[in-house]
Each structure stands twice: as structure tokens, then as C-alpha cells.
Computed example of a mutant assay.
Amino acid sequence: MIPLAGAIALAFAGSAYAEEQIVKIGHVGPVTGPSAHLGKDMENGAKMAIEELNAKGVMLDGKKVKFVLLAEDDASDPKQGTAAAQKLVDAKVNGVIGHLNSGTTIPASKIYFEAGIPQISPAATNPKYTQQGFNSAFRIVANDGQLGGTLGRYAVKTSHAKNIAVIDDRTAYGQGVAQEFSKGAKGAGATIVAEQFTNDKATDFNAILTSIKAKKPDVIFFGGMDAVGGPMLRQMKALGIDAKFMGGDGLCTAELGKLAGDGLIDDHVVCAEAGGVVEKDKKGLDDFKAKFQKQYGTEVKLYAPYSYDAVMTMVDAMQKAKSSDPKKYLPELTKIHHKGVTGDISFDAKGDINEGTLTLYTYKGGKRTILAVTK
């Protein structure tokens, strides 16, 4: 028989336990495959946010909340991405952060929408993601229409390119950003002299680069990721192609220096990252990067601040709704105004970030150097 004092203590403990809510937030990104370094970066940003929220002791409707991150690997593969999405739906997550690639984000978004689960992508930039009419889909970075178009205009107006070659990796992201770049460049008066494609696992580009070399372009634009862009730069140098090399955020990483080796010539690469902060927000992002470095022993690669902000924005909406029920907090997410480490976050009617910033970079001594932050 349990003594009375023990029974009271057990009852109290049971009551306290019952009062604590478990809120499950899913995260999906590639933590295997060629983009694993970017997927892990994104996952760690989300993990940092979850740990901070739990340390803070968030309350929802008078009950303490424990946030749990359910992390899945999609390996940048659409089939694996939809399988991961279904797994999170089956686990009854309250919201999803991800995916990284547009090619996995777009098919997965239908699964989340049908389950009524809000999804915030910290990285996917293909415009189609938010053009499907899914009220559950949001992104906190500028889309390819903004990013590719800005790069296309920059190539002509600032780099004075007249003849441009375009290569893409046939992924939803690569094709999307290349198309928007071409539109922007042509609209500014350039001629597209060559259009070639490869795939996101290719390592040999000699045939397409030799064909492009004959067209004597001023700029070669590549729609794809750094794991392919790095070796491509090496082979451009070996073939004596001195055109400038441009790309979107998938190319624009700290890793590009290692991947391109001696193919990365100073001031020869121009790329853009969706996001970036204006001067007034710089200290907040710098503080985040320092904290991230201390916690994980590695520098932010690219997406960690955006996944961190995506988690915090989602939880901000839950707090405003006083509920982690997707039906209750989704309306708050559509009208949110969240001050994040990457700047002010609010969404338009489609779920795109309002006034998304872009950061233009070049490389000097193998390291990324900011050219400008623009909108």
C-alpha cells in the first residue's frame, strides 16, 4: 500500500506531467548525398531554435510546452522527400520546416496541405512552390523570380555582359533559377548564345563547356548546387574559358572554394543568396553566427539562420493563437510579423516573404565577399 504522502506526490507529478504539452515540429533536408553539408546546416539551425524554446519554457494556453524536433533525410530526392513527408504526417507533427531543394519541397507540399499541416521552407526558391494554391505553404527567402531576375539584370547592367551561356542541372531549382536569369538578362538586352544542361550528380562537363567555349560568352550562368558548380569551375579553367561564372544560392556557399580549388579565380564568380540583412539587422545575424559556431564547432554554411527563423516564426504564430493545433495557428501565420535574425518576416497572400532581400557575392582568396544587399 502506498503511503498517503507518496500517493499525493504521485498524483501531483501525474497532474504536472499531464499539463505539459508535447509539440512535434518536423524538419526535412538532405543530410546524405552531395548537398548533405547544406541539409545538416539547415537542420542544426532548427535544432538550435528548438533548444532555445525549451530552455525558455514556452507556455501555450497556460500549459508548458516541450518542443520535439523530428528530423528526416530526403537526400535531395523527390521520392524520398514525399516518403519523409508522409512519415511526418503519420507522426502527427504540428508543423514542418523544410525542405531544402525545390524538387523535394514542391511534391511534399501537397502531402502537408492535404493533412492541413503548415510548412515553412527556409531554402526552396522555385516560384511554383507558392503558386499551387496551398494555404499551408510559406517560405522565408526570396524566390527565383526575384533572385534569377536580379542576377540576370546585374550581368548586363553591372558586368556589361552581352553574350551569355546558360547551364542548368535539370532539377526544379536549377531549371527555375536559370529560366528566371535568362528572362532578366534578355530583358536587359543580352543575347543567350548557348543553353546546355547537365544533372545534379555529374562530374564531367568537358563536352558542354567545349561547345560553349566556341560561342565566346562573357558570362556563363549555372543553375545548380555547389557540388556540381565547383568541379565545373575547375574544368572551365583547364579549358581556358575566361568568362565570368554566375549562379544562385545553391552555388553561393562557403564550400565553393574547396570544391572549385584553383578554378575559383578572384572576382570571377558572382552569385546571389536569397536573404541577407540590411545594416540595421547585421548585429543580430552576427550574434547568431557566433553562437552557432560555438555550439556546433563549424561556421554557418548558408541556411541555418533561415531554418532557425522558420521555427521561431511558426512558434510565434502558435503563441498568438494560444494553440499548437494547425487549424488554429495557421490563420496567425498568414498575418504574422516576426522579427527574426535574418530580418522582418511577414508573408504575402501566396505565402512568399514580403520584401525578401538578396545578397550578391563574389569570391576573393577562396572566400565569399559581399558585393551588395538588394531587394
Results as ranks from 00 to 15, higher is better:
residue 348 D to I: 08
residue 245 F to P: 00
residue 241 I to S: 08
residue 324 S to E: 12
residue 267 D to K: 13
residue 371 L to P: 01
residue 302 L to W: 05
residue 258 K to L: 10
residue 369 T to L: 11
residue 276 G to H: 07
residue 279 E to G: 01
residue 292 F to A: 03
residue 266 D to A: 11
residue 286 D to G: 04
residue 356 G to T: 00
residue 304 A to T: 07
residue 368 R to I: 05
residue 245 F to L: 01
residue 256 L to E: 06
residue 308 Y to F: 15
residue 359 T to E: 11
residue 255 E to C: 02
residue 289 K to W: 08
residue 311 V to P: 01
residue 271 C to E: 01
residue 253 T to M: 10
residue 292 F to N: 05
residue 325 D to T: 05
residue 355 E to Q: 15
residue 331 P to Q: 15
residue 345 I to P: 04
residue 308 Y to A: 02
residue 362 T to W: 06
residue 292 F to P: 00
residue 262 D to W: 05
residue 283 K to S: 14
residue 276 G to Y: 13
residue 242 D to K: 15
residue 338 H to A: 14
residue 284 G to C: 05
residue 343 G to L: 12
residue 335 K to I: 13
residue 352 D to R: 07
residue 329 Y to A: 06
residue 297 G to S: 01
residue 315 V to S: 14
residue 251 L to M: 15
residue 292 F to W: 06
residue 312 M to S: 04
residue 288 F to V: 01
residue 326 P to A: 03
residue 252 C to F: 14
residue 350 K to P: 00
residue 276 G to F: 10
residue 266 D to G: 03
residue 332 E to S: 10
residue 301 K to A: 15
residue 290 A to W: 03
residue 333 L to Q: 04
residue 278 V to H: 14
residue 247 G to F: 12
residue 364 K to P: 02
residue 354 N to P: 01
residue 271 C to D: 01
residue 328 K to R: 13
residue 278 V to E: 15
residue 274 A to N: 10
residue 293 Q to N: 14
residue 295 Q to D: 03
residue 299 E to Q: 14
residue 346 S to I: 02
residue 359 T to I: 09
residue 289 K to E: 15
residue 280 K to Y: 01
residue 338 H to T: 02
residue 314 M to Y: 11
residue 276 G to W: 11
residue 296 Y to A: 01
residue 308 Y to Q: 03
residue 359 T to N: 02
residue 311 V to F: 03
residue 265 I to C: 01
residue 273 E to H: 04
residue 340 G to P: 04
residue 265 I to T: 11
residue 365 G to W: 13
residue 323 S to M: 14
residue 305 P to S: 08
residue 265 I to R: 08
residue 322 K to W: 06
residue 283 K to G: 04
residue 270 V to S: 06
residue 323 S to E: 14
residue 317 A to V: 10
residue 323 S to A: 11
residue 304 A to H: 08
residue 304 A to C: 04
residue 360 L to E: 00
residue 265 I to P: 00
residue 268 H to F: 11
residue 246 M to Y: 03
residue 251 L to S: 01
residue 250 G to S: 12
residue 294 K to W: 00
residue 307 S to T: 07
